[in-house]
Amino acid sequence: MSEVEIIELPKEKDPRGNLTFFEDVNQIPFEIERVFWTYDVPGGQTRGGHAYYEQQEFIVALSGSFDVVVTQPDGKEVRHRLNRSYYGLYLPPKKWRHLDNFSTNALSLHASDRKFTEDDYIRDFDEYRGLYAN
């Protein structure tokens, strides 16, 4: 996959409570190397504001809701609302993103195909834009 995409995850319905899961390669297009989550985000705050050179990421709203805003090199924004735990957003490398509009008690789960390395981050939007310059 080379584009941002919402992926619907399996939903096992049960009167005792539903169950959803994802397995690397079966539901998402990479093998999972790292998992992290964000929570207790104060009202009005944003998370992210970067892209990765190589890392792929899959984001799920386990609780509550938030928006993942993907900014194109020309500055155009595409907003993806995550508010169901059986949907996730796949982000390939070189996609500028930030998360905002967090509801109370929002919990975002992030699975990625790489361990953390600062060298993989693109933290300057002009540098990001330069990757797409002709």
Rank of each mutant, 00 (worst) to 15 (best):
F58K: 04
P42Q: 01
E5F: 06
F22C: 13
V4S: 03
R97Q: 14
L82V: 03
V69A: 02
Q56I: 11
E57D: 01
D24Y: 11
A111C: 08
L99C: 08
P42H: 04
N26I: 15
T71P: 06
Q72E: 15
R123N: 06
P10F: 09
T71A: 08
T104M: 02
Y90K: 02
P73W: 06
D120E: 13
Y87S: 14
I7W: 03
V70P: 02
L62S: 07
P29L: 07
F22L: 15
E33R: 07
D119K: 14
G88F: 01
F116M: 02
L82A: 09
A106S: 15
L131K: 03
D126H: 09
P15S: 05
W96F: 01
E8W: 00
P42V: 02
S85K: 13
N83E: 13
K115T: 12
L109I: 10
R47P: 10
W37P: 00
P15I: 04
V68N: 10
V60I: 14
V35L: 14
V4Q: 01
I7F: 06
I28L: 03
E31T: 15
H50D: 05
Q45N: 11
F102G: 00
L82T: 05
T46A: 06
T38K: 08
E31Q: 11
D100V: 05
F125M: 03
P15A: 01
A51M: 07
L89S: 00
R47F: 05
